[in-house]
Design a protein around this nucleic acid. Structure first.
Lengths: 153, 153
DNA sequence: TCGTTATGATTGACGTGTCAACTAGGAGGC
DNA sequence: GCCTCCTAGTTGACACGTCAATCATAACGA
């Protein structure tokens, strides 16, 4: 009732913006994934793994290092590597310096799949995100993301 | 090479904004879900279903109508309703006017769960989204979402 | 009426993600 | 050596999502 007290719950308009925002970003992610899948037979997860391995020395990484690089939990990575190994996109090798460890190695098939996916991926990012926004909106999107990230801690 | 030709691939800066944006919105969704789960033992999907049923006449909806309301594919809804029915949050009844159809009915347990989740949910939206942004950023977020949605078609 | 097509909804297979439990090997202290 | 603790990675159970196939019923046209 007081004009100075901070409102506890969002207004209808704020909720409308929230719904639009969260649903749209979800749809964006889905569309990106669908294009990658259709054109390259890769999921976004596959792409992230292949990208990290491609940039690594010798196209190989310790499993935990890979998980850190792409920001995944180790168990998620382990499950995903299992599926990728079945498709021969990567290979697991024992680590010589630490018998507990495993090294994830990019296979030729994986490297080829990644090469084939780069252009479609970047094109989709441009079409669905960069070109959809004005330069001012793109800047604002970066600032909004930073503000949200700061709040997430 | 020409200054007037549209760049085919995103610049490094554009890609940086893209990555920050998509990862942050994903983290936001995850945090929302985690809070709802921790405080109310409901997933975002559960919440969407319960919200739609709560607002429906007689707290019941035809399955397809519910799917339309929350923008889900029917098979996704069917799987989710199966899980919710096991927890007694909803109940399925045969539809009297169309023998193919099913009606989804909110149970007292489901209604109670939804009541308990409303405030935590709105509080989380305010804390993680509305309060994280300036009024200008909130407006911009709405416009950005609209622009992206327009591009998605 | 009878066949064809469209619709409402479910199912199964499988990819994806989280959590908790587990295995196995290093690392340090005694 | 041996005990304890930490770390690397895997596994199983389960929730969630998509796709294609299926099934029953409604609707429609000859």
């Amino acid at each position: 009732m007081t004009g100075t007290t901070r409102r506890v719950q969002p207004t209808t308009e704020e909720l409308r913006v929230w719904r639009g925002f969260i649903e749209t970003t979800e749809a964006l992610r889905a569309e990106l994934g669908a294009r990658l899948q259709a054109e390259c037979a890769l999921s976004p997860g596959d792409y992230a793994v292949l990208l990290a391995l491609s940039e690594a020395e010798g196209q190989r990484l310790r499993s935990s290092q890979l998980a850190d690089d792409i920001g995944w939990e180790r168990s998620r990575l382990s499950h995903h590597l299992g599926r990728m190994e079945k498709r021969a996109l990567i290979r697991r090798e024992e680590c010589r310096t630490d018998n507990r460890g495993a090294e994830v190695v990019l296979t030729p098939e994986g490297a080829a799949a990644f090469r084939g996916a780069t252009v479609p991926h970047l094109t989709a990012v441009r079409e669905l995100f960069v070109d959809a926004l004005t330069p001012e909106q793109l800047t604002a999107a970066g600032e909004i993301a930073a503000a949200l990230r700061a709040r997430l801690g």
